[in-house]
Design a protein around this nucleic acid. Structure first.
Length: 280
DNA sequence: AATCTGCCTCAAGACGGG
DNA sequence: CCTTCTTGAGGCAGATT
DNA sequence: CCCGTCC
């Protein structure tokens, strides 16, 4: 999502390089849906997913199995969090996605007709879709492995943040900055990066972010809304820098709106920023 | 001149032998 | 009625100050 | 590290 790293000055995060690819931490929570996508897209051989003898896909199971073992080897006890019902999306976003998918389908067909294997692989990956069965199968695997998991009532990020805030787990592992907006005390980024990507695990402290930005929880939430979260549009022409500057000056979206030059910036009609705020 | 925003595109795991 | 669901990073052009 | 293989 769009609450991107660009919004956060480097001092707000605490990078830690470790000898192992995972830190020695007790119980981070990990959002599972993105893992599913990654495994289904990446775990392939000659363009095909790995399968059992009946032709059923096993890429996601391989991925979860080995990654979880690796974490256990490094002294981490993960708790996976699955998304509950899908988030209600903006209709514009949905349309865009449909268009992208359709474009990929056309490109795939062209590649197939031209016999361009490289492009066939590329567009096949772009069309990967995670099903309910994939989710169920992974949950079954985790059960058999004795690894706990939770199915969130709604968004996994919110659930992660809630349990981290309650002190049940060390932190939330996610690439999604919304997790921080939901109030996770500790956000672990790049937790699932493979070793060859050479990225250090990034431990972000909510408190230090607020301190570094000199913001309160309330202004931080407003900042994320201005940057464009999953729940509502952002204001065209206002990106990270202006959003930060405006909030520094005015403290809240209401105050900003009151002083914003309507000739320069167009605020979306019926802009539901208050609803978005309530969700965080 | 130096920023800043927005749009485009791409790529996405893990293991182990040599 | 069903097929549930993606996203971050980096590069670039053009607008803006 | 590189690259074939995992199913």
């Amino acid at each position: 999502m769009a609450c991107g790293g660009a919004a956060f000055p480097r001092r707000a995060s605490v990078p830690r390089r470790r000898r192992f690819q995972f830190p020695k931490l007790p119980k981070p929570r990990i959002t599972a849906s993105m893992c599913l996508y990654q495994f289904l897209i990446a775990v392939r051989s000659e363009g095909q997913n790995l399968t059992n003898e009946d032709g059923e896909t096993t890429s996601h199971l391989m991925g979860f199995f080995y990654r979880t073992l690796r974490m256990m080897d490094n002294g981490i006890k993960p708790i996976y969090v699955f998304d509950g019902k899908p988030p209600q999306m903006k209709s514009g976003e949905l349309a865009k996605r449909g268009a992208r998918r359709a474009a990929a389908e056309v490109s795939l067909k062209e590649a197939q007709e031209a016999g361009e294997q490289e492009n066939i692989d590329k567009y096949t990956r772009r069309l990967v879709r995670v099903t309910k069965e994939h989710n169920t199968e992974v949950q079954q695997l985790l059960t058999l492995m004795g690894i706990p998991f939770v199915v969130a009532p709604a968004e996994a990020e919110a659930q992660c943040a809630a349990l981290a805030a309650a002190g049940k787990v060390y932190g939330a592992a996610s690439e999604d900055m919304d997790t921080l907006t939901f109030g996770t005390p500790t956000l672990l980024r790049h937790m699932t990066y493979s070793e060859n990507r050479k990225k250090p695990i990034n431990e972000v402290s909510y408190e230090q972010v607020l301190e570094g930005l000199e913001m309160t929880k309330e202004t931080f939430v407003d900042l994320c809304i201005l940057l464009g979260c999953d729940y509502c549009e952002s204001i065209r022409g206002i990106g990270p820098h202006r959003a930060l500057a405006l909030l520094r000056e005015h403290q809240s979206i209401e105050n900003i709106l009151a002083s914003l030059d309507p000739d320069k910036f167009t605020v979306p009609e019926d802009w539901p920023y208050a609803e978005a705020r309530r969700l965080f």
